[in-house]
Design a protein around this nucleic acid. Structure first.
Lengths: 228, 228
DNA sequence: CTTCGACTACTAAAATTCGCACTTTATCAC
DNA sequence: GTGATAAAGTGCGAATTTTAGTAGTCGAAG
């Protein structure tokens, strides 16, 4: 899961980012509205935390722009002033949640989690699962429930697997994967993605799962149960 | 959209219900926790507004129960007391939003709307169909609804079929097909297109559909139902 | 009306290409 | 130094392209 924090107070932005990273979110920071918009328009973020008072472009304007461009990231508004009208205005414009400063950082985190929760299933989202695979978000441990074997997963491979589980049984293109795992501004030249796929597949095999990452030539990859 | 309000102060419950009904939601009211749970377990609600202090069964317990029963309704918690720990506890248990009394009714409505907003997901059409053929765009799988057989379709053949379905029952020339499937600057010398038609027809036959790609001599091809 | 030739369409199979998998080597961060 | 990440190298095989041979269609001439 990838989150963009748009907040000009560097200390606060950094605090939020650090806490979120501890929860295994990938976080980018923009310190002003213009940069925030630029990043937001990439449409790779699952959620955007957006301050209202920003240099260069206000949060409200930014919000309007991303809605106009059909960006599907969720948005949590963050603000010092908060008359009822301000709130209503933002909700009207499509905000998903609205937090008033000062706030407890834990509450913000809880609200972030509430927004990104996969409704219905995975109520407590510490564990992502697909078939006999369980991926513990906190410890980065991958477990196979049939063999009861477990293995630790390094950062990149974790991101990769997380993306696959969140898009289980769907074909995802290399570009999509690259954007999510490495970020927008990566060269995407070498076959580095394929190398990591190989690492990940090896680990899945080691713990004895029958889940596989299948290549769909020309289109991308797909997480599925292997059939034999 | 159907909403359940669980709140023992009748005046407040009624106010919320009335306002929601004005926005075209269907609303039911429960005045105590037991009745609330009974209603909630029907799993017909898109959202539940839940007070914490309730007769017979507390909101928190109710929440635990519906999560245990895998109810997929969203939940907005409504409460007078609100220490940070209370909030965190509720979010932890899977609440989607948390509103502290006293609140402006308009803010609650806005938050309800925010939760039930359709986020523009699933708007994109995932499935192209013609007669008994269904082509899943995400998985590149072709299914026949009469036989229930399915088969995977590689890239080129997928493009070809996609074009045919988008121009169902119309005669399309070889040039048009070539431009769409291979791009404008292709040699178009060999009978490569015909080879692919052959592949595709074979697959359609394998899954037992009665749709056919008919050649119209000198003009092109046409996707239609075969008649026998 | 029939027959023949020319042309178009179809399919099977061989040839080729190119995407992908895996390994190895280099670089980086702690 | 150790483990994680990035880059480079190599071989395989499925997807694509090409080739070639067969079947079917049409029209004109006998």
């Amino acid at each position: 899961m990838r989150i963009l924090v748009v907040e000009d107070e560097y200390v606060l932005a950094d605090l939020i980012a650090t806490k979120l990273k501890n929860q295994k979110y990938q976080v980018d920071i923009s310190l002003d509205g213009q940069d925030g918009l630029y990043n937001a328009l990439s449409d790779i973020y699952d959620l955007i935390i957006l301050d209202i008072m920003l240099p260069k472009m206000s949060g409200v304007e930014l919000l309007k722009e991303i809605k106009k461009n059909n960006i599907k990231s969720k948005v949590i508004m963050l603000t010092a002033k908060s008359t009822l009208d301000d709130k209503l205005d933002c909700f009207q414009k499509g905000v998903n949640d609205y937090v008033t400063k000062p706030f407890h950082i834990e509450e913000l985190l809880a609200r972030v989690n509430a927004q990104l929760r996969n409704d219905g299933k995975n109520v407590i989202k510490d564990i992502l699962e697909y078939k006999d695979l369980k991926l513990n978000v906190r410890t980065s441990t991958l477990t196979c429930t049939t063999t009861n074997e477990a293995i630790n997963i390094p950062y990149r491979e974790y991101l990769l697997l997380e993306y696959f589980i969140n898009n289980k049984e769907q074909i995802v293109s290399k570009e999509q994967i690259y954007d999510k795992v490495w970020g927008i501004n990566s060269d995407f030249e070498s076959n580095n993605l394929e190398a990591y796929l190989s690492f990940l597949r090896k680990k899945i095999k080691i713990i004895g799962s029958n889940v596989q990452i299948k290549a769909v030539r020309g289109l991308g990859y797909k997480l599925e149960e292997s059939n034999e």
